[in-house]
Design a protein around this nucleic acid. Structure first.
Lengths: 138, 138
DNA sequence: CGTATTGCGTCTTCATTGAAAGCATAATAT
DNA sequence: ATATTATGCTTTCAATGAAGACGCAATACG
């Protein structure tokens, strides 16, 4: 199951994508419309900014907006950034690999099956973008 | 990512499946061979027993063994039992459904994509059994 | 200017869960 | 009876999730 943080991140990104042409959006507006605790949302948006996905502007008329185009932000990227590994086991993860103890990966049936799951999941999350899911929500 | 508990559960089941014909297996033996903390493993095996997957015998010559046949224990069942929901969002889960706030599920793009992920994952985890993964490990 | 607006940074808190460890009890084979 | 082994119950300890408080920094606009 995804953490609240990740779910909030996706919701915020969808909201921003829908308002993409309208200039900076207030954190408070996103928080209210999407039912996200304000301070928590600040952290999330900041993380997305540091990763180069969003940008922000301070002061009056400020707020958050996309730095990259929503059509370029793949869901897998957001997942890895906020949630961490996509694979179900550390010994399978492409970006967060860790060897597992007492287990020869070349002869581990669990490894084989979980790789199948990872590949199926990745195929979906790498092919869909924030723009895709925001458009599905109209 | 799966919890340690779930990873241990799978490893223990694989070990038991490989020794299926040799009578009860000691908790201590599984713990040692698979590098699992003894007391933690006790809890896990007990849970698997209460779910009807395993059975145990006390006293000398006792230990754990399969109640159901390993070919009948689907990975999805173990996952749901030990880990919880397989879906990435509560509003998608078949067995642990919860409505999500501030989100109309019929018009949520995130919902659509995460359902695809769930279905792809389920197709694999429902079709593979403990017997399958234990045989892959020889 | 300076003042209101808005994001940024840091620190603290609080509850939940993960991951065990300890110890006493119950069943079984011999 | 006794040794062996599983079971039950309680507690602990660390990490993480999920926030809340408060002050600082940048910007627009008059």
């Amino acid at each position: 199951m995804l953490s609240m943080k990740t779910q909030y991140a996706f919701k915020a990104l969808m909201y921003l994508a829908q308002k993409d042409s309208e200039g900076p959006v207030l954190i408070a507006e996103i928080a209210e419309k999407k039912g996200i605790p304000l301070k928590f949302l600040e952290n999330i948006l900041l993380e997305l900014k540091k990763a180069g996905i969003l940008d922000s502007k301070k002061g009056k008329g400020g707020g958050y907006f996309f730095n990259q185009r929503p059509t370029d932000v793949r869901l897998a990227k957001v997942m890895r950034l906020i949630e961490g590994p996509i694979a179900l086991l550390p010994c399978i993860s492409l970006n967060f690999y860790q060897k597992c103890k007492n287990c020869d990966e070349r002869h581990c049936g669990l490894n084989v099956v979980m790789k199948e799951v990872r590949d199926a999941t990745l195929q979906i999350l790498e092919s869909k973008t924030v723009s895709d899911i925001s458009k599905l929500s109209l």
